[in-house]
Simulated scan of single mutants.
Amino acid sequence: MNQEDNEKKVMIVNGSSHTNGTTMVAIEEMIKVFDAEKIETEVVQLGGKPIADCLQCNVCQKTGECVFKDDGVNEFVKKAEDADGFVFATPVYFAHPSGRIFSFLDRVFYSAGSEEIYKAFQFKPGAAIAVARRGGCSATIDALNKYFGIAQIPIASSTYWNMTHGLTADEAFKDEEGMQTMSNLARNMVWMMRCFELGKKNGVPYPQTATEACTNFIRRDDGQR
Rank of each mutant, 00 (worst) to 15 (best):
M1Q: 09
N2L: 05
E7I: 04
V13Q: 05
N14K: 10
S17E: 07
T19W: 02
G21F: 05
T22L: 06
M30P: 01
K32R: 13
A36H: 10
A36K: 14
K38C: 01
K38H: 12
K38N: 15
K38V: 01
I39L: 04
E40D: 12
E40V: 10
E40H: 13
T41F: 06
G48D: 12
G48I: 04
I51S: 04
A52N: 11
D53C: 08
D53P: 05
C54I: 07
C57G: 01
V59P: 00
V59D: 06
K62A: 13
G64I: 02
E65L: 10
C66N: 04
F68R: 11
D70T: 14
D71C: 11
N74L: 08
N74R: 06
N74V: 03
K78T: 14
K79C: 06
V87T: 08
F88I: 09
A89E: 03
V92G: 03
H96K: 11
F104R: 09
F104H: 09
F104P: 01
D106S: 06
V108D: 00
S111E: 03
S114V: 07
E115R: 11
E115I: 05
E115Y: 04
E116Q: 14
E116L: 09
E116G: 01
I117D: 12
F121D: 00
F121K: 07
P125R: 12
G126C: 02
A127L: 15
I129Q: 09
R133T: 12
G136H: 02
I141H: 09
I141M: 10
D142V: 08
A143Q: 13
N145V: 00
F148H: 07
G149T: 01
G149F: 03
G149H: 10
I150F: 13
I150A: 13
I150P: 00
A151I: 01
A151G: 02
Q152L: 14
I155L: 05
A156N: 09
A156M: 09
A156W: 00
S157M: 13
S157R: 10
S158Y: 00
N162H: 08
M163L: 09
T164W: 01
H165F: 13
G166W: 03
T168A: 07
D170F: 02
E171S: 10
E171P: 05
F173E: 08
E177F: 09
G178D: 07
M179T: 02
Q180Y: 07
T181C: 15
M182W: 03
S183K: 15
S183F: 01
S183Q: 14
S183T: 12
N184W: 07
N184Q: 12
R187W: 00
N188V: 02
N188Q: 07
M189E: 00
M193P: 11
C195S: 14
E197V: 00
E197S: 14
L198F: 10
N202W: 12
G203M: 08
V204Q: 09
Q208T: 11
Q208N: 11
T209R: 14
T209D: 02
A210E: 15
A210L: 14
E212M: 12
A213R: 14
T215L: 15
N216P: 00
F217M: 11
R219D: 03
R219S: 08
R220K: 15
R220D: 08
D221P: 03
G223W: 08
